[in-house]
Amino acid sequence: MTIPPSHASAIEFDHASFRLNGRALLHDLVLSVKQGETVVLLGRSGSGKTTTLKLINRLLLPTAGQVRVNGRRTADWDPIRLRRSIGYVIQDGGLFPHFTVERNIALVPRIENWPQARVEARVRELLATVGLDQELASRYPRQLSGGQRQRVGVARALAADPPILILDEPFGALDPITRSEMQKEFRALQQRMRKAVIFVTHDLREALLLADRIALMEEGRLIVDLPVAEFSRSEDPLVRAYLEAFSGLPDSTAIMRGSA
């Protein structure tokens, strides 16, 4: 599809708010993500990160302001078409337990009626992309490790090659070693794919490793939106609080230096 030059952003929050039962879950958010850019939404539980993601794929509609995807308001999109153009990864993969790995990955290509041969080739390609053995294709999610399930989740999100990828604490349930592996692989993957990525986490180190920009949220508000190199230098009290909370960890400085 052609994107008008005035809307170079793949995702754009234009003073978007979301209220539920009189409570503001998200307040006046202004944020944009360009193609090829990774923006990490950082914040604690209840800060409005997940609400922000749901506004992108129209699981929610803003109660005020606008959210635009490829220049078009989400309210004007056919929700099915919109969602199929956005890859979505959640914690523990959110895989269908009654589908094999192959059927999970092939979900969107199948409902988009790709020819069978193309679907099969795409599944093989994606298994390789996320570093999974081909013979796992016939397994069920419960027969996989947490890390493998998460890889399948990423492969499923990438299946129809959507231009936008949104990830909701995808690596939150993994053990530290697997998590660190997945983070590095994801970074390498994104450097190749150049998609518009919004990645939600409450882990500062993960944010510093993966982000081009970090958007720090608290109580439904965006506190700062900074390039990753400037984030650790920010004087904002909440940013300082985050940096201090994580600075006690022995390897945090090494990771911060590595990512800057």
Binding site: L59, R81, R83, R84, I86, I90, G94, L95, I111
Partner: peptide, 10 residues
């Protein structure tokens, strides 16, 4: 979570 993942996939 499974239902929502399905809905979010379109």
């Amino acid at each position: 979570a499974v239902v929502e993942a399905g809905r979010a996939m379109g």
